[in-house]
Design a protein around this nucleic acid. Structure first.
Lengths: 147, 147
DNA sequence: TTCTTCGGCCTTGGTGAATTGCATATGGAC
DNA sequence: GTCCATATGCAATTCACCAAGGCCGAAGAA
């Protein structure tokens, strides 16, 4: 798997909202410009996120999007799955019947484990965490690690 | 990322060789039939694996392929990378310059971590391990977990 | 009513995966 | 030395999906 543009853009867009606070309604045009994302594409992605209950949309003048929940209650995995659907390294993981060999396939076992390790990272971090990381990375060069 | 057929077939093929022992020369036709893999496709995959020093090829009558090293010296990651090249969740991980935002991108940090967790699993297991797992899974129903 | 913004649908171009085919090189068997 | 099985290399095909853009309709605030 590679991350798709949709996931990349979607995360950026959601982080933009999380950074501004839960209740500030923000139009696509602003996010699109600020994060350099094709507006129509972002619109499509945000539709999925609205339907999944992660975002709330507001139509009409001064409309836009807000987070539907506090940033601390939304994990990175929530966002990614809302965009792409459940992530699996192979088809045989969610659907063992897709391969005749599944029952005795050692590789499948290994892939299940690998997938778990990967997803753990996405479950463990909420949007709040990521926004905090982002702020601390861009703002203060408080210390020089290597003078 | 999804695992590709090439990776899937390549692993199956290599495991077939590992299961037979390091020095038994086996032609594509046998592997292809035993594991239900398109022969020409497997040929292409095995070319990469030969060039990477994981397999050794033997031409002519009674030719075929063998492992170039003992199964305990080849990790799952070795095989996968020989087939697909280095695995990365996004382009910006190996090549930070591909995105202007890389230096202060929190998502990138998260992805680096996730990728590490994933690859750890593949580095930790050798072909020998996987063959052992495979044997213990298919052969003896020594105990019934749920009578 | 009017203007702004999201919603849904349809189209397009591009890229890469997954094969298949054909011609060539190699080396063991006889 | 000839022959045949086998790998090697290159080309072409098919198909699906990603990425993006366009158009028009629906909703809602001013």
């Amino acid at each position: 798997m590679q991350f798709t543009k949709a996931e990349e853009y979607g995360m950026q867009g959601v982080l933009h909202l999380a950074d501004k606070g839960k209740d500030e309604v923000t139009p696509l045009s602003e996010i699109s410009e600020a994060r350099d994302i094709p507006e129509k594409f972002l619109a499509k992605i945000f539709q999925s996120l609205s339907r999944s209950g992660i975002l709330r949309s507001h139509r009409g003048v001064r409309g836009g999007f807000t987070l539907a929940k506090p940033p601390g209650d939304i994990t990175v995995k929530d966002v990614l799955e809302a965009i792409q659907g459940p992530y699996h390294l192979t088809k045989c993981i969610p659907d063992p019947d897709s391969c005749a060999r599944s029952a005795s396939c050692a590789m499948r076992e290994l892939l299940v484990t690998a997938e778990e390790r990967l997803l753990e990272v996405f479950v463990k971090h909420t949007l709040e965490d990521v926004v905090h990381m982002e702020r601390s990375m861009s703002a203060p060069p408080s210390e020089k690690p290597n003078p």
